[in-house]
Design a protein around this nucleic acid. Structure first.
Length: 410
DNA sequence: AAGTGCGTCAACCGCGTTGCG
DNA sequence: TCGCAACGCGGTTGACGCACT
């Protein structure tokens, strides 16, 4: 039948260890220390191979082994280290006192890995799964036109109402059942369409301020930089020092600002505005005018991974259409680091609105409890929290990676 | 109560690396 | 430099327990 192993060949025992065997091993190591595993079993009176003894000691009997469930902090560390080290379990274990490589490996494979897959993150690359990226990008980019047009028209119809526009939006634009068929249709037609940038998601209440002349926006998307709100924000933004070398270095990074609404989430939900770097002119203005062709290329061809890393959380796709895509971004950008990030990354900067800055959790540690993904969730289990935590953490981590710096990490 | 499916995790296996003669 | 033994690592297996039917 099976291949004869060294243990079987030598008449050595395999399988689970008995308490007596454990005690014999412990006693021997207490007396003589570990090492010399080949001769240890004989000296300890064990009918086991040295390999088995070493494994039993290092993975189970060692006095400094920490048993029990992994804490949030440990899980956080594992994810972070795995994104850097990959499946180097021993290297990861070396940074987690009391945890063995075997334990971490098992925990990864049985818990974390599954959760990542569940939320659409590739556990190997720590990025959104590529098979979902194109689909989602396509949906976003194409739906953006109709979505904003709807919002604008809706706003024009309701501009005396202080409630958020989305309260009147009705059902999401996309549901799970239609997702694949819609994607198929879009894929076949996308090349003929003039797609408006996917990632510019603005707070309609703020952009189209009540003092604006709403009639000018009727039926079409105004250039965002032409709205009074964005004019004022960009004026602040453009006062910051921008270095051309950083622009060159980060030319494919993204302008990020925190805004509310506009993506199918509730009015209390804070979302994040993300615009491709290509859409930001030399004064720091978002230029929708220049984006229609270049953004199509950006989304579908040039750098989908980075755009998704920074702007989109695909865990929300299945549940809430586009809405949750922007949600996690806020979680990923610690409020007290926004200015640092701006100065660090020059043109690839962050804009924070007053509304978001009061709502975004200050620290990474708040990610567990401070999720803004509150759109439809009614119950929260510990597993749910961990799912959310994984998602948040990974996005946070990937942003830091994408910026090629550690400035976002506490 | 018995059968089945599934998740978990301790333990095994094989291969690569290191150290030494 | 080579060969061998010992060790370490990562992938995989299989026993066990629990939930569900």
């Amino acid at each position: 039948m099976g291949k004869i192993t060294c243990c079987e060949k030598n008449g050595l025992k395999k399988g689970p260890w008995t308490p007596e065997e454990d005690q014999a091993l412990i006693d021997h190591i207490k007396r003589n220390g570990h090492g010399r595993w080949r001769t240890l079993p004989k000296n300890a009176g064990l009918k086991r191979c040295g390999k088995s003894c070493r494994l039993r000691w290092t993975n189970y009997l060692r006095p400094d082994i920490k048993r029990g469930r992994f804490s949030f902090e440990e899980e956080e560390t594992i994810i972070q280290l795995h994104s850097v080290l990959g499946n180097k379990w021993s290297a990861i274990a070396a940074r987690l006192p009391g945890r063995t490589d075997n334990e971490i490996k098992n925990y990864w494979n049985t818990h974390i890995r599954k959760r990542l897959l569940k939320i659409g993150i590739d556990p190997v690359t720590h990025t959104p799964r590529l098979d979902l990226l194109e689909l989602s990008s396509l949906l976003n980019s194409t739906l953006y036109n109709s979505h904003l047009s709807y919002l604008i028209n809706n706003y024009n119809n309701n501009h005396n109402n202080n409630n958020n526009l989305l309260g009147n939006m009705g059902p999401p634009l996309v549901n799970n059942e239609n997702l694949l068929s819609l994607a198929s249709a879009l894929l076949s037609s996308s090349n003929q369409q003039n797609i408006v940038p996917q990632n510019i998601v603005q707070n309609q209440n703020q952009i189209y301020d009540n003092n604006d002349d709403h009639s000018q926006y009727c039926g079409q998307l105004p250039f965002l930089s032409e709205t009074p709100y964005m004019q004022s924000k960009m004026e602040q933004f453009s006062q910051r020092t921008i270095h051309d070398d950083q622009y060159q270095q980060n030319h494919d990074l993204y302008h990020i600002s925190n805004q509310g609404l506009a993506t199918g989430v509730e009015s209390s939900t804070i979302t994040t505005t993300v615009a491709p770097m290509e859409l930001i002119d030399h004064n720091g203005y978002i230029s929708a005018r220049s984006s229609s062709s270049s953004t199509t290329s950006l989304i579908l061809n040039s750098s989908p991974v980075k755009s998704q890393r920074l702007g989109l959380d695909y865990s929300g796709i299945g549940n809430n259409g586009i809405g949750q895509i922007t949600t996690h971004m806020n979680m990923m950008i610690p409020n007290n680091n926004i200015n640092n990030t701006m100065s660090t990354f020059g043109r690839s900067s962050l804009l924070s609105t007053p509304s978001s800055s009061s709502s975004v959790p200050n620290t990474y540690n708040n990610l567990n409890s401070g999720s803004t993904t509150t759109t439809t969730t009614t119950t929260t289990t510990q597993e749910d929290e961990r799912d959310s935590f994984c998602s948040n953490f990974l996005m946070f981590h990937d942003i830091a990676n994408a910026f090629n710096g550690n400035e976002l990490i506490m």
